[in-house]
Nucleic acid binder design. Structure first.
Lengths: 147, 147
DNA sequence: CCTGAAATTCGCACCGC
DNA sequence: GCGGTGCGAATTTCAGG
């Protein structure tokens, strides 16, 4: 599916502020409410818009610890392993990558010992051969909106 | 600032669907519209809610290539370097980490040669000593909502 | 923190371009 | 396919308790 410039403008605006009405958006973009609304519906239907979420300041609600963990797998059923890891609520990202390790994950925790428990828990998952944990000292950017 | 269970419920629900009215939310949670609305306003004011965004299917709009890039820095002014890197629109995450490399970044691209150009561009940034690029073969999870 | 009513705003359908 | 108008419904806001 390809988007025209109208779709792109709408997407861009909804990424900046998902809580604005079709009317407001139409006003801003200089087109009719109907057009904006029907485009949004179309984008939702085609699952280009997957949903709308509030962006939370993780640190302010207590998630002060971010970790990036590399995983070396025993060489079969990596997909199953990744699915298993994805189930954890602390886990924000799970990527299957090229290079010397197989999988890299990003996870967030409130306490140091939660991270500790988590890493120990990883070792019990089938196919996890080895893990390398990196603690994030500073997050310079974390914004998955793409314009 | 600490949240009570009402705040948490509201946050959780807004993370699931940012485009629902305070009234709907109040109905679901069994409290009044006014209460919900004033809590939301409070959470916005305290910047616990940083904003509201539409979640987009990156692959469907053409970002089919994700890369994770490790960076080794010359050992001063890492912060400046990270700020510089954060400016790129393709860059979704920039993390300062412990371990053998200094910084790890996540970036998304539409084309293979965009990635290529990007990595070459990195080398020209002051303080970038060396980069290691991992191509993401599969994204098992990418969801930075924390309950 | 809730109730209730006022005032605003919204979404959608209809119609014309 | 896009835009304008209008109406019923839904939403926020403002009182008072």
């Amino acid at each position: 599916m390809n988007l025209d410039s109208t779709d792109e403008k709408i997407l861009k605006n909804l990424m900046m502020d998902a809580r604005q009405s079709a009317r407001q958006l139409a006003l801003k973009l200089g087109m009719s409410t109907v057009t904006v609304l029907s485009r949004i519906k179309k984008l939702e239907k085609e699952k280009i818009i997957k949903g709308y979420t509030a962006t939370i300041d993780h640190e302010k609600i207590g998630y002060s610890l971010t970790a990036i963990i590399e995983i070396v797998a025993k060489n079969d059923k990596i997909v199953d392993m990744e699915e298993e890891i994805s189930k954890f609520e602390n886990v924000c990202g799970v990527y299957d990558i090229t290079g010397s390790t197989d999988t890299i994950i990003i996870a967030k925790f409130k306490e140091r010992n939660e991270l500790s428990k988590f890493v120990k828990g990883l070792a019990t998952i089938p196919n996890v051969e080895n893990t390398i944990t990196h603690v994030v000292l500073n997050t310079a950017k974390e914004d998955f909106r793409l314009t």
